[in-house]
Amino acid sequence: MNAANAMPPLLELRGISKRFSSRLDFAARLAARLGAGGRAQTVHAVDGVDLSISSGEVVGLAGESGCGKSTLGRIVARVLEPTEGERRWKGRAYAEYDAPASRSERLAVQMVFQDPFASLNPRMRIVDLIGEAPVVHGLVSPGERDDYVAEIMQRVGLDATLARRFPHQFSGGQRSRIGIARALAVKPRFLVCDEAVAALDVSIQAQVLNLFIRLREEFGLTYLFISHDLGVVRHLSDRVVIMYLGRVVESAGADEVFVRPNHPYTQALLAEIPRLEATKRTYIPIRGEIPSPLDPPRGCHFHPRCPHSTPRCQAEAPRLREIAPGHLSACHLNDSP
């Protein structure tokens, strides 16, 4: 961590945890008071995650559903507040910023959502969807808004003459571009892309991925690219972070993860990716399903499904530690001689 500390990372997460608790309703509270059990249930969505992202870097965050990757993305975008831990932006904790600075720095991190159908208000015209935020935040005057929106639409490959239309008049790929344009309109430095291409067809997905690659160069953007699709993650990312049940299990350079995966979960996940090359193969699945985050297994979260599990894995959670330069993994197997 101390090496090459001349530039602080753009964004740093320290020990971030997020727990969601259900509130007991009246009947359950009554039952609890009468001693009939009934405890509030808590989901450990994110559990002690450390992550730092440098300016200009693309970090891919991958994992199965329920692993906490979207929750972590929302915490990074400051849509959610963490239960524990600290977020640092440009080397300072958010708490150290005064109110106006905090407000303007909030604009610097924007989010692109998965579902291009649900994330656009169907009653708003495109010009309002893209132009509302920059006007509210005083980036452009109301008079300049239409020209500004037209320019952004062109940057993301949309025909600017369509600005007066409504979202339902666009295809899925175009709506994705609208979602990206809306995020870019407030001149962010950092984009959190939560499954931004998952809903698209293969040929359209390639177009949108190319757009992300181009925008990164044009605007000098930093991405946290969240996806369950490891092929997409590998293509776009400099570094890949794999999560399982709220914890980071492995983190390394993109090629390193795919060529020398260390954690048994990463290895299993990579083995499962259907490949274009693997003509006629026999599928050998990993056992079981991702356990409920309401009641995660003790010790290493992966041990019930792990082929190498030992008694130690059931008792003690492995720490994420460096096994090679820049390659972190959380597995007890790395300790054995």
Binding site: Q205, R234, H235
Partner: peptide, 14 residues
């Protein structure tokens, strides 16, 4: 246009 058939980080053939 499938990412694994393309060189990493380069624009995909679309």
């Amino acid at each position: 246009s499938v990412p694994s058939r393309n060189e990493r980080g380069r624009p995909l053939r679309q």
